[in-house]
Design a protein around this nucleic acid. Structure first.
Length: 342
DNA sequence: TAGGCCATCTGGTCCT
DNA sequence: AGGACCAGATGGCCTA
């Protein structure tokens, strides 16, 4: 089981790493071109704008330094330093000549450009991290801090699975993923997981409810449990983890599993500045299509191999620009779902 | 309008 | 001296 998980996931990870390296090189080359020209121009503009201020400050430094040097000389004269300020250590500051001022400005501009590049690299790395944690969306990105938190939880969850050698229940898994996340992100992650597990459960229930947890299908302490499958009194929007369920309607109702007891509703906790809800809507739509194409009554293929082998989904996915990447991502973290189900 | 998030600038520190 | 890294400050944008 574990070896299968590794054999399926590792090629994807390696491919991602290779893609990233290639992309990174490309970005790097581009940035070298752009940053050093456009950004330096930008810096020059800024520098010209702030030059008067800087020069005045530096001029002020000049005077200060002369005073400091005089003071230091006085300190030297007062070796015992009784009552005087402690003598400054380290190299003495040199006077800021016009040439030194100019050099300092150039150095500062170059440092700014480097800092920008560094932050861009950091952001690129964060983008790549977003792609390998659950619930990736190209259009509605997780914030930096949420990405890091989710990545940490994801790693811990995977480690826990590997250590125990057995699948946790879905609720535990979602709880591990969502630990410390903001409410909107929690909803997003829970929503993604719910869909994946929902598909599985739906299949299982259709097959005669082979998979059951105590009570409702999930025994979910939150309200994100599968209402279609369990409670006819489900009220979307109620509870701390209520999901934006509207998205289920169009893509889902067309399916054979649509249920009349489901009323689309917006949960207030799911709306965020990042439009995560609307984005998750897309994810939901997409996930449904994806799952519908890669599952069958008797053969559920959640894993990446299944997705690759299915071959059909690529032509049938909805026209969202971020869908393809989500496909890739879905294939990856659905490997984990495959782990749940094998 | 407040708060969250982000990009950028900047000065300090450490290292080579 | 210069580069990498870091953290604080600042202003812009967006959303509730």
């Amino acid at each position: 089981m574990l070896s299968r998980l590794f054999s399926e996931v590792l090629p994807d990870v390696q491919r991602l790493a290779a893609d990233w390296a290639e992309e990174h090189e490309h970005e790097k080359a581009k940035e070298d071109d752009n940053d050093t020209s456009a950004l330096m121009e930008n810096d020059l503009d800024d520098a010209q704008e702030g030059s008067s201020r800087a020069e005045s400050e530096l001029a002020g430094d000049d005077e200060d330094e002369e005073e400091e040097e005089e003071a230091e000389e006085e300190d030297c004269g007062d070796e015992n330093g009784l009552g005087g300020k402690p003598k400054k250590r380290g190299p003495k500051k040199r006077k800021m000549t016009a040439e030194r001022v100019e050099r300092s400005k150039v150095r500062r501009m170059k440092a700014n450009a480097r800092e920008r590049t560094r932050m861009h690299d950091l952001n690129s790395a964060l983008d790549n991290l977003r792609k390998v944690v659950p619930c990736y969306s190209k259009t509605q990105k997780l914030s930096k801090i949420e990405t890091l938190r989710l990545a940490k939880n994801y790693i811990l969850a995977l480690g826990e699975i590997l250590r125990n050698g057995k699948r946790p229940d879905v609720v535990t898994y979602v709880q591990m993923l969502c630990k410390g996340l903001s409410q909107p992100t929690t909803n997003l992650v829970a929503g993604c997981m719910q869909l994946n597990t929902r598909n599985y459960l739906t299949e299982q229930c259709a097959d005669g409810a082979r998979f059951h947890m105590a009570g409702s299908p999930f025994s979910v302490p939150y309200s994100y449990r599968c209402s279609r499958l369990s409670s006819p009194h489900y009220q979307p929007g109620a509870g701390p983890l209520s999901l934006r369920a509207q998205s289920y309607s169009s893509a889902y109702e067309a399916s054979e599993y649509s249920s009349p007891d489901y009323e689309a509703a917006h949960s207030p906790v799911c709306s965020s500045r990042q439009h995560e809800s609307s984005d998750s809507d897309r994810n939901y739509h997409y996930s449904m299509h994806y799952s519908g194409l890669t599952t069958s009554r008797n053969n559920i293929s959640f894993g990446s191999s299944g997705a690759r082998n299915s071959g059909a989904h690529a032509e049938n996915i909805p026209p969202f620009h971020d869908v393809h990447l989500h496909h890739d991502r879905g294939a990856q973290y659905e490997d984990l779902n495959a782990f749940f189900h094998n």
